[in-house]
Simulated scan of single mutants.
Amino acid sequence: MVFELSQSASDALWLETHQQFMPVTSADGLETISKIPPQLGKGYEREVALQPGVELHIFDSTYQDIAIHIPENQHPVQFMVYVSGVADSGDFIYQDANWGYVGGSGIQTPVRTFFPGAQHQVGVIVHVQPHLLAQLFGNSESKLQPTLDVLVPGDEQPQQVFSSPTTGAIRAVVRQIIDCPFSGVTKRLYLQGKVFELMALQLEGISTPVCQNRMLKPETMARVQQAAAILRSHLETPPCQTTLAQRVGVSDRTLRRGFKQLFGTTVLGYLTEQRLALAERLLRDTDLSVTEVVHCCGYSNPGHFAAAFKRRFGITPRQCALGVISAQS
């Protein structure tokens, strides 16, 4: 059963926990370490104020099945990367160890974020005030400028969000942030440098298609990313391509071109890859039968599923469930 919470109810639990278990300040005074409310799960969050306008949050927690309902709000620029775990915000965004998140400033629409139970959630969040983002990365000749214009649209404009692919370089930087070996001034300078490096890598990840093909505008890229998020959250019963295009406000042709440029495949190819990736995780990490996994991943024909799985991973679904390692995963 999913524990559904409003943002205000979640905040009240955090306040109650802070009163019962006072947050701990690190010896160098740079970090505040807070315990996760026991009603939600276990673990902690570390908050580091790197400089005015830039905040770093490091989380290491395991939740129950919970969903937080976040109301419309004015949002800063945000960068987020998961080393492990999942946060599923449905059509808004989906995050796991393969996909991070870059959110612009502006008005964030109401969103429900689901945290699956018994998943070890580890990662980092960076909040940046909009004017600092422009100071750090923006100028008229910067290849990042088109993306920055979308991320910082101006007062009272809707927020734009992007799924950012989590590369090996990004994972390495996140681990260095989490495992920072220094203290005091050296620690602050080290973390500042690593946070700016992480931001640059994520911005590069969502900006590359813009640089490669100016025909794909940043606004269009955001809509294609939204379409991808819809598919990931509806793998069992996805909308057809025409309906998907209508939901995100682009034409069929633009959607096809966008998927090709952003993901290097068709809409159907992307859906198939996401279904098979989910199938592999379920077969390896749960006790579901192959038949149950087939239905969870939206396949109606077990034979078609088995053939697609074998092509993708080089082993059969049953071999995967038995723990055989695929050389292609």
Rank of each mutant, 00 (worst) to 15 (best):
M221H: 01
A222I: 04
A222K: 04
A222Q: 14
R223K: 15
R223W: 02
V224M: 08
Q225L: 03
Q225N: 15
Q225A: 12
A227Q: 08
A227H: 07
A228L: 01
A228R: 10
A229S: 15
I230G: 10
I230V: 14
I230E: 12
L231H: 07
L231I: 15
R232I: 00
S233M: 10
S233C: 14
S233P: 13
S233V: 04
H234N: 15
L235T: 12
L235I: 09
L235Y: 11
E236Y: 01
E236R: 13
E236N: 09
P238E: 03
P238W: 04
P238G: 02
P238Y: 02
P239N: 07
Q241E: 15
Q241S: 09
T242S: 09
T242D: 14
T243D: 11
T243E: 15
T243R: 04
L244N: 07
A245C: 07
A245G: 04
A245H: 12
Q246K: 13
Q246P: 00
Q246E: 15
Q246W: 08
R247L: 12
V248D: 09
G249R: 07
G249Y: 10
V250N: 12
D252A: 07
R253I: 10
R253V: 13
R253D: 14
R253E: 15
T254Q: 15
L255P: 12
L255E: 10
R256L: 04
R257S: 11
G258N: 05
G258I: 00
F259W: 11
Q261M: 11
Q261A: 13
L262S: 09
L262F: 03
L262G: 04
F263T: 01
G264F: 06
